[in-house]
Amino acid sequence: MNVFRLLGDVSHLVAIIILFLKIFRSKSCAGISGKSQVLFALVFTTRYLDLFTSFISIYNTVMKVVFLVLSYATVYLIYLRFRSSYDSESDTFRVEFLLVPVAGLSFLENYDFTPIEILWTFSIYLESVAILPQLFMITKTGEAESITTHYLFFLGLYRALYLANWVWRYHTEGFFDQIAVVSGVVQTIFYCDFFYLYVTKVLKGNSKLTLP
């Protein structure tokens, strides 16, 4: 474990908690893409199948359980508890355009052609594009509440910190996971446009992000 990965995991946890609390306390999921949240729940489900078979550390197990519980709880809030506030007309990204290529690629490019490894690869590829429905929804509505932008900031920051973690691990222990690194770079690039808007608009104290 290194400081970059720890800060990355904390940033990821903060993002997930920010979103969950925003929906739970405002009793509304307006402006939130339910599709992205379903994709994230799928990412955790296909990645953490080894939850009961391989024990890494208490931290690893606890964080996996927390991520799984909070992601499914968020999907529950959006599609069941506060479904009247779910803006399905704006959440129109065709997720099949993500799932099919990601599934195909995970069969073609993986470390080992076994179910558990292909599902892990699927989760890595899927995570890199899972935010697209949410970013698409913001461009479509032309705005986002500031709390939603803070969620996106910490979510984007987490994988950027993981890139630093992989640089650190490469130089200190020769660790290199090509599939995770390439996907992580792609994932972080998708946030660059948002990061620019976040820094130039939201941090200037605007109540919410309105796209030009």
Partner: peptide, 10 residues
Amino acid sequence: DEAVPTKDEL
């Protein structure tokens, strides 16, 4: 299949 990197990350 090349060696599978350890999966100790979240």
